[in-house]
């Protein structure tokens, strides 16, 4: 558990960070909270001769709620997400989800940006961001661009972000109505066996809009349009939920690991989704 030697940088501006990235090319990586990257380096599964710590860059911090638009700096920690009263009003699903990530010690360091940018299918925020319809702002040598969360994740640890780019902010519309993030895990600190993010709105006793995303049930987060469509116009009764579960089941592709075999994961994914829908509906 001893990493190979590396140079450590702590730039104070995005420009400095970008130029370090350009100087060292493939030998450099940016680090947010470090709770994924540092263990990989200690296991020598990642070799990073030039490690660029983003902690000191003020531009990457801060939570802003401007009307219906929520903007979160990439270096905002999970702890800050939990503590933010603005976020609790504008997007309460984030607090519910962040409280289910790891443990308090990890959440003091772990960031929302690192959680999505690492592209780890086990992370919780990618699915939440797809559910929210978030956009990711990236800055690179050629300027800035935005990528929709629903188009960002390509494969395990592979995202639309290029090696020269840094994720700066996450932006999404405030959500109204019912919400839930339901996660089954083996213990504190574990990744999800299965988790479901559900947002929905109710009009006249039926579901007006719905958005559903699943975590750790494929090599990327799964935003299931079909599952959400199954709820449209229904009273989210057991028949509708069963249809949503079936639709979701068609979209996920879990693999066997120590958390269990595929059949179990599919079953738990369904149960998790059904509980999330029920809770979200009760809050709508």
């Amino acid at each position: 558990m001893i990493p190979a030697a590396f140079e450590y940088y702590r730039p104070e501006s995005l420009q400095d960070a970008l130029s370090l990235l350009q100087t060292h090319g493939d030998d450099a990586r940016v680090m947010a909270g470090g709770h994924s990257l540092i263990p990989m380096m200690k296991l020598r599964m990642a070799e990073v001769p030039h490690l660029i710590d983003l902690q000191a860059i003020a531009d990457l911090r801060g939570i802003r709620v401007d009307g219906d638009t929520v903007s979160i700096g990439a270096m905002v920690t999970q702890h800050e997400v939990i503590e933010s009263t603005d976020l609790l009003r504008a997007a309460p699903i984030l607090r519910e989800a962040a409280l289910q990530i790891a443990d308090p010690q990890v959440r003091y360091m772990g960031t929302i940006g690192g959680n999505v940018a690492n592209g780890d299918p086990g992370n919780d925020m990618p699915g939440i961001m797809q559910c929210l319809g978030a956009e990711f702002s990236l800055i690179g040598p050629d300027g800035t661009r935005t990528v929709a969360a629903r188009n960002f994740f390509e494969a395990a640890y592979m995202t639309a972000r290029t090696d020269e780019e840094i994720l700066t902010r996450i932006t999404f519309p405030a959500h109204a109505g019912g919400f839930a993030y339901e996660k089954q895990k083996r213990k504190i600190g574990d990744y999800a066996t299965a988790a479901a993010a559900v947002l929905l709105t109710k009009e006249g006793g039926t579901c007006a809009t719905a958005s559903i995303a699943m975590t750790n049930l494929s090599d990327v987060p799964v935003w299931s349009e079909a599952a959400a469509a199954a709820l449209d116009g229904t009273a989210c009764d057991s028949g509708a939920i069963a249809k949503a579960m079936a639709a979701m089941d068609g979209d996920i592709d879990p693999g066997e690991d120590n958390r269990g075999p595929v059949a179990f994961k599919r079953h738990v994914a369904g149960i998790t989704l059904s509980r999330a829908i029920t809770r979200a509906w009760s809050r709508a």
Binding site: R186, T193, G260, F264
Partner: peptide, 16 residues
């Protein structure tokens, strides 16, 4: 008796 093994018991007994 972790989650999936308990689930497997229930599955085997037809409780699902």
């Amino acid at each position: 008796h972790d989650h999936w093994r308990i689930w497997r018991i229930a599955e085997g007994l037809g409780l699902h």
